[in-house]
Nucleic acid binder design. Sequence first.
DNA 1: GCCAACGTTGGC
DNA 2: GCCAACGTTGGC
Length: 152
Amino acid sequence: MRYWLMKSEPADVSIDDLASFPNQTVDWYGVRNYQARNFMRDQMQVGDGVLFYHSNCDQPGIAGLAEVSTLAYPDRLQFIKDHKYYDPKATPETPRWFNVDVKLVRKTRLLSLKEMRENPALENLKILQRGNRLSITPVDPRDWQTIMALLA
DNA sequence: GCCAACGTTGGC
DNA sequence: GCCAACGTTGGC
C-alpha cells in the first residue's frame, strides 16, 4: 500500500464537489504529464491512500482524505475531438493517457500549505520542494503518519 | 497578473 | 541528440 498527494483545482473539482458526486468518486481525468501518468498507470493500487490537495486557489492545502478505488484505465477525454484534453496522437487501440478513480474517505480541516511549510517534520514532502509542479506525487509513509496526526 | 521553474516540441 | 522557443503550473 502506497500513499499519494493529488492536486486538484477547486474551481474544477473541490473536496465538496467530490462529496457530492455519485459514490463520492471522481475519475482523475486530464493528467497530461508522463511522470504523473506513470504513477497512476504503473504504481497505484486499489486502496492506496490519497491526500486531496487544493491547488491554484486562495487557500492552497490538503482539504481531505481519499483512496484509489480502481486501477488505471484510459482517460476518456483524450478521444473527444475539440475537448481541452483531446490528444490527436491517442487512439482507443493505443491510448496515451490513463487515470484511476478516487473516492472520498473524509473531508478534513484545511491543512494549509503554509502550515506544512512551517512544520520541520514535513521538510521532505515533495510538494514543498522548490520547483515542484507535479500534480501527483508519492508520499512517504512517515509523512503520511505525520499528516494523519495533524488532521486527527 | 507576475514570473520562476520546469516539461515539451521541433528544427537542425 | 541538442537546445532554443514556447507553453504550463501554481504560489504569491
